[in-house]
Design a protein around this nucleic acid. Structure first.
Lengths: 202, 202
DNA sequence: TTGACAAACGGAGAGGTCTCCATTTAGTAT
DNA sequence: ATACTAAATGGAGACCTCTCCGTTTGTCAA
């Protein structure tokens, strides 16, 4: 039974730091609301919050991390919904569970479009793999893989669950999803259906 | 029989402009070669070429467009290869032609990795859809759609060729492709095989 | 209380993208 | 040759991201 944290000393966050964190979060939330995530710069947030840029960047290395923090609670709720659905529907065929979860995610994506896009564009400073770092991606990937595995349980084909899960999530990235909506003109429901046909049903 | 251009007057490019264009191209090529596309800024190119930033930006709105111009010839050759292959193999089953073309593209992608990534990151300034604008994307999409249609010719399922083509190209975008290589650890051949299994064979 | 010190802070500044516009210049018509 | 004009130029400057580092400030132990 190991302690939750075994680092020598858990220095609690200083009071002024905590206050500033909340100030940043509030300011960002307000500015994002008012001008849209895309239009607001880190600079602007720092200025509006009356803190130095250094202070802002020491806490969030880029706007993506800030968005990540702003959306954290919603993400937690999202996964709770999924867990609950899966727990209550263990006997439902996996392809149906898969579809339902994609539907969950599409709704989530629609509701949190701007912040989610903000999170995904954290590529700056980062040498590679922006999406991997996001816990959202990793956790969702894990869930999809398990469902794909469940689907293939009887077949003896070479497992491509991980790859298929990556493809599905790729298809639901801001980039691809809004391309399908805005350029190809599909509705969220049509996109769900196309994903289902393409990746799930045989 | 309409003339190739029916605009009132085709002002030919001024000599100094043409010279500058070549100067920019040469300078960019050299710097890209030396430091890598990613590491070279528009600023640096302008400075090195001894022209003002304004001059550079009036010709190429961003680094993506510059990369696009630098890679143009290779892209033309790439499509010539494809056309030739398709012309000579009209009777080959479509799924095989598809695989071959994906293989072509993967080789192309490997050879021109940096510039291709540079092209895809032209999202700045642009409100949306970076990939649509690229003629590479559009033309390749068209070819894939035709082959998917050919495959589905006998089946009477709801056509999803356009969507599938988008998904395949998404999977072969820098973002996804190098994620699969660097994080998932797949080789180009394995990626080709996974794409084939996922999108092409029934 | 009072150091001591790590954490937090702020802002100067390096370097980037991109625009604007006064000025220069290549072609063209006279 | 000369004048005209639209294209091309370049650099100042607005605004951005991000780092570095000297200074300030909570926190804790003595």
């Amino acid at each position: 039974m190991i302690n939750d944290e075994n680092t020598p000393r858990i220095r609690t966050e200083r009071r002024d730091a905590a206050k500033n964190r909340q100030l940043i979060l509030d300011t960002a939330h307000r500015l994002f609301e008012q001008f849209g995530v895309e239009q607001v710069s880190m600079n602007q947030i720092a200025t509006e919050a009356q803190i130095g840029p250094g202070t802002l960047y020491r806490r969030y290395r880029n706007k993506g991390e800030l968005c990540q923090d702003l959306i954290k609670d919603s993400v937690d709720l999202f996964f709770e919904d999924i867990e609950e659905y899966l727990k209550e529907n263990g006997q439902v065929p996996p392809h149906q569970k898969l579809k339902e979860i994609l539907s969950f995610f599409i709704r989530f994506r629609e509701k949190k479009a701007q912040l989610l896009t903000g999170v995904e564009e954290a590529k700056s400073t980062n040498p590679l793999k922006p999406r991997t770092k996001s816990p959202l991606y990793a956790e969702l990937h894990q869930i999809l893989v398990e469902l794909f595995d469940e689907m293939e349980a009887n077949e003896n084909t070479y497992s491509q669950s991980a790859f298929k899960a990556d493809m599905v999530l790729m298809a639901l990235s801001s980039d691809s999803y809004f391309f399908q909506k805005d350029v190809r003109g599909y509705s969220p429901e049509e996109i769900l259906e196309l994903l289902f046909i393409t990746f799930i049903v045989k």
